[in-house]
Design a protein around this nucleic acid. Sequence first.
DNA 1: GGGTAAACGGTTCTACTGTTTCGTTACGCT
DNA 2: AGCGTAACGAAACAGTAGAACCGTTTACCC
Lengths: 200, 200
Amino acid sequence: MSAEPGTVRPGGRTARVRAAVLRAAGDVLVEQGFDGLDLADVARRAEVGKTTVYRRWGSVTGLVADLLADMAEQSLPREETGSALGDLRANAALVRRTLADPRQGALFRAVIAAATCDERTAQALRRFYEVRVAEWAPCVEQGVARGELPVGTDADAVVRAVSAPLYYQLLTTGVIPDAPAAERAARAAHAAAVAGVYVG
Amino acid sequence: MSAEPGTVRPGGRTARVRAAVLRAAGDVLVEQGFDGLDLADVARRAEVGKTTVYRRWGSVTGLVADLLADMAEQSLPREETGSALGDLRANAALVRRTLADPRQGALFRAVIAAATCDERTAQALRRFYEVRVAEWAPCVEQGVARGELPVGTDADAVVRAVSAPLYYQLLTTGVIPDAPAAERAARAAHAAAVAGVYVG
DNA sequence: GGGTAAACGGTTCTACTGTTTCGTTACGCT
DNA sequence: AGCGTAACGAAACAGTAGAACCGTTTACCC
């Protein structure tokens, strides 16, 4: 009943194993996608015992959830350009670059797929976006303070509105969003915010 | 080498089997999600030979793709309200109702998950949305003709912009969009279109 | 530096997924 | 109605995912 393995002695070998497994899992995801993720294969690539992978992560979704948690730790700081539209543009460009990156893009698709069938992964995903949205929400609040956006604008909603079309395009058409798409996403969210759609 | 089974004699028993299997597959997807879809289990529920399911659909993604094709056949006709905003509202409400429906919502999540790891499913999904978007694009074109929206507005982009936030919310937060969310989605797309974001 | 137990890893085993075979049913055609 | 064969279905078979066991390594504490 020692809770979860890896929590009592997280240093040294345990950390090395975790890093190797997550790296290998990422590689497999990029190459074969979510349902090609075989834990035995991951163990082989990571040069780690198959038992260890099954014991610590248990299932494909558990592994993906941990991979996401690992990614969440390396979130990039927000840029500030001086205007709400500029900040939203910067955000859109960042999201687009993330989705366009072969490794991170594949990872996001896998994570979203995993979240649709596993509650724990879904929670991890939710928390990830909460952090990301909270990081960027201030740019909307500053826009309100500057008088660029209406008072009472829901900052989180605006930030989410920037990401939505980019994710939607990637997931439903499979086409990786390009720079103009990011520009449109930023301008659309800005225009809607200015029009007061996100007030109240 | 008789091509695909079910193509030469598609009537009678074959059709009954297909209907039973698709129904059972939908049930499993709703209950357990994409990776809980076991073909043997589906066969059992459909009261159909396990062999048949494997022979005709082969894999989980193949079955999901067929399920999607079946869904595409029952697309609802577009409503017309007399204004671009009203039409976009109607579209948003329709999309929201679809996602909120326990069966269809779960199905969509599963299909999107499946599309992330199987090219054939991804194609089926793409075609599905092409049809849906094409069905609703005329309401934007009418809006342009009426002078409500700028000349040169990309009709498809506007229609997609309505759906994007609703799907994004469902997939990343797991929260089923409510009526106000649909209203916001419609107004945001409309505001962005009016501002000329989708021109060119 | 030594003790303790947490975590790893090789092997074995079981249960289940997916395939193959072959006999049976019934669809479509005349 | 009767025939030929497409499609179905039960059972035997194969391959593998994932769990259990147990010895080995090594991280943490003193």
